[in-house]
Amino acid sequence: MDWSLIFELSLKGLIGINAVYFAIAAIGLNVQFGYTGLLNFGQAGFMACGAYGLGMTAHYFEISFWWGIPLGILFSLLLGLLMGIPTLRLRADYLAIVTIAAAEIIRLVVRSVRFKHYFGGSDGINRFAQPFREVGADFGIDQTQLYGFGPFTFTGRELWTMIVGWSLVALIGYLVYKLMKSPWGRVLKAIREDEDAVRSLGKNVYSYKMQSLLLGGVIGTISGMIFALDRGSVQPDNYSRDVTFYILTALVLGGVAKVSGSIIGPMLFWLIFTFLDNFLRQVADKPIKIGNFTIMQSTQVGQVNFMLVGLTLILLMVYRPQGIFGNRQEMAFDGR
């Protein structure tokens, strides 16, 4: 067992690009779910909006890469309206159902042969991040050189994406924190607890819910952009239902209705996930058996790890719905 390798990789997971894009997506989900009580199970759809917005500039529109940012945001606003208009007047379940369905359809459409011309089919769109990386080079970060120390060693390409990513986490986190301390955030928190009470006080609940859904969606879109920039590509299967569920797990792990929770949660998620992944991989080097019954072999490590994600979410919901760092008195995605 190579413990030093396991710990090295795990620590990289803590601050790596996965934690970055999960954190941004989780902040967005937190605005919707943690603060407003909106069940958006289609965050992956919003992320796809951002990734494809960037990708399509080169692949289809043949315009400057930088137009991808407003384009992605536009896509996500349209998606948010499509999801929100039919559901936000109804009980919470309907939003969950529609978001899950819409995200799934988006994935099918972008991977379809029919629309390959626009979205590149199942191969997605590749090699469009060059303009972004050139900016990194302008700041003196060599794409291929290694930077850092000990376990925290990254290539210039990774480092540049991480610098931008963590800056965005800090900026978005700060803005959301400010918003939630403002009267606007107060209305959202009140809606989470009891819509009717808020209505009776003269607030247009529908409008606030829509604002929250769109804001969270746009933040999710930014997360999708960072993820796509890191890879330099978009693949439709990176935006499946499961991704939303994992982000939700990471958020709940850190604690809902807290900005810090939505940043620490994803970091912890990837620390633990990377640790388990590497640990189990080494453990299951030879199939583990009881008698003739194989408990686990190396090809199953990924699935066992995701099973643990599911189990974690279950146990959190039963024993600590406020998350590890959440405050039970304040936490309330379930006001009733």
Partner: peptide
């Protein structure tokens, strides 16, 4: 919310104080 803005406010049979605020 329009009624409330016009000056008609109501309370509820089952109190709706927002307990987590």
């Amino acid at each position: 919310h329009r009624m409330a803005k016009l000056g008609m406010v109501r309370t509820f049979q089952l109190t709706k104080s927002l307990t987590k605020l």
